[in-house]
Design a protein around this nucleic acid. Sequence first.
DNA 1: CCAGTTTACCCAAACGTTTGGGTTGTTGTA
DNA 2: TACAACAACCCAAACGTTTGGGTAAACTGG
Lengths: 359, 359
Amino acid sequence: MRSKFLCKAARRSDTVMKKDKTSTLRSLAAQLDIHVSTVSRVLQGDDALASKAASKATITRIRALAAEYGYTPNPHAISLRTRQSRLIGVSVPRLSDIIWATIYEGIEETALSKGYFAYVTNSYDKPDIQNRQLALAQARRVDGLILGDAHTTPETLDFLSKLSIPFVLALRHAGDFLSVTCDDHDGGSQAAAHLFAQGHREVAVIGGSRFTSTGQERTAGFTDFFRQAGHPIPEERVIFSRFDSQAGRETTQKLLAAFPSLTAIYAVNDFAAIGAMGAMREAGITPGVSMALVGYNDTPLASELPIPLSTLRNPVRELGERAMELLLCLLRKEPCQSVVLKPRLVIRESSRYTARALP
Amino acid sequence: MRSKFLCKAARRSDTVMKKDKTSTLRSLAAQLDIHVSTVSRVLQGDDALASKAASKATITRIRALAAEYGYTPNPHAISLRTRQSRLIGVSVPRLSDIIWATIYEGIEETALSKGYFAYVTNSYDKPDIQNRQLALAQARRVDGLILGDAHTTPETLDFLSKLSIPFVLALRHAGDFLSVTCDDHDGGSQAAAHLFAQGHREVAVIGGSRFTSTGQERTAGFTDFFRQAGHPIPEERVIFSRFDSQAGRETTQKLLAAFPSLTAIYAVNDFAAIGAMGAMREAGITPGVSMALVGYNDTPLASELPIPLSTLRNPVRELGERAMELLLCLLRKEPCQSVVLKPRLVIRESSRYTARALP
DNA sequence: CCAGTTTACCCAAACGTTTGGGTTGTTGTA
DNA sequence: TACAACAACCCAAACGTTTGGGTAAACTGG
């Protein structure tokens, strides 16, 4: 019996073992003269499974050898066999927007801690790129998707309803697909209340992209407040364009030219607000001194600007984490529902200016 | 013969084909009553291989059916069989630093266009996290790595020399491992030349992280210039810490307190420079008016600041692209060498201030 | 018309796992 | 003392590809 053991082990280890290269379940099994299926069950992590499969002593032997050889299971083999990749695809408008980078950090870290593996791609908010990315994700056999670039257009809704891969929306919502968002309407409302309390009645809004729930609702929350307060904002003073600083600059130039009586501007994005600062400066206006300005997102830079920017802070990192958790919940086929987080107004110098004309 | 064809095809299509789910090479082969290996060779993309494997007519039939079923090969099966994953791991200090996000955009896009697949993780510049990420990358069987978080410490060098996976360094270099960087020494030199030409002799440097080639060389380029110009900068006026705005703020506070005669500050990072602006403002100093300030990186925000920031622009997106190309070159085992890109000084208001005391 | 080449395929093993179902030998129970 | 139950394993098929090596039949040149 002993000789048989030696012979068998020796024979196999010559042909199968590759000491220098990565070890496999089979090579470990051969070393130990134990069947590969037993080794598999022991090394799968689940203690109950391991106990069913082998004796205490054998379990120890297997684990010891695995540790010695630094065995790591081949993920491709596992994916092939189990038909799940543990891969999560994430699509965002632009990773170089710090908000998205931060959301992705939350996603990635949570995925990692749950044994999943995330990757991210830019779609630049362009439908054709979004479609290409989706096809690629499918080709890679992702288990699930987190979509940060949803539009509220019928095309997007239609597209999402046809998607066969489990997914959740992040930051932006659309239709009533599962999503993790921040309460943008409430944020807009907070900004409005803040400016209103300081006497501002002649206000304008830089609304960001019209096709996104964030652009829409951050704007609506603001205008709804003013309407309910009896001071509806004329439509022409609400301009949608994009979320970047150039859009903010150009929009502000238009606004300042068209409405000289303006005392405050609310931009639904900090970058747009920073662009607005530039335009104000060119027009001889100092934010916080001769005009109030409120942004949105609380970019780390907002507090570091020469004139620190009042803004709404979203818990974006948490948003990423929650999105990943929600997706995992969905993948486990447990009942799950959309999450809405709360923004918080951070008041700084840029909105210190008080309108004189209180009614 | 015809009946045999029908019979065989019918039998197989019942058992193997899953019309609704993803089709496989085998299901396609069964449908066409052709061997799976032939289908494989035809669908592998390589036209020469396809022609060797099947007749023109058969090739057309196979391609048509593949297109009809929207066949995409299972990447896990391919990776398992070919023993290469086409996966590239990227490690960066922080994705939420726009520089890294932009570099990664370049990497990701290039990888995609070459049929590779990149993923990115944060290491926060912490060695233990770096090691963990590396182990994970190995477990995932990446084909190659792009490391953006290299330190110049002996530990890192030692670690890299032991790494069995092909890799290239990006933005930062270390030892003489293959890398794609920008000429940081030259950038520092350009900043120095600019300030020197404006009469500045009492200058200080916010040097970023001491453990990175970027921090070191952006600083060295600057101090070397002043030394060669006959005005060496006293050591105490060069302070290393981190690359973020808080570090910039704190360092500037110290510098202003210690050296009241200072007429210019050079920060090796825009965020640090923005922090410096904050500290200056608190001290009653206006950048560009009563002190010159130069940053590094040309963050999109630099030009949008109320006082636009002079800074050095690195072609970071291209850097990402080149890093990926270099890695692919390495993977093909072709001879390849490190790449150095050139930074460009962008002069804006923050350095408009001229020192009175020309010698 | 025959040897040699080419065309158009087929065959089977492998990549590294997982997993439903055996098969022994030992222990507990009626 | 028979027999069920359990422990501790083994067996083999599958997941979807790739790839080195066949093998007939058709074509080519002499």
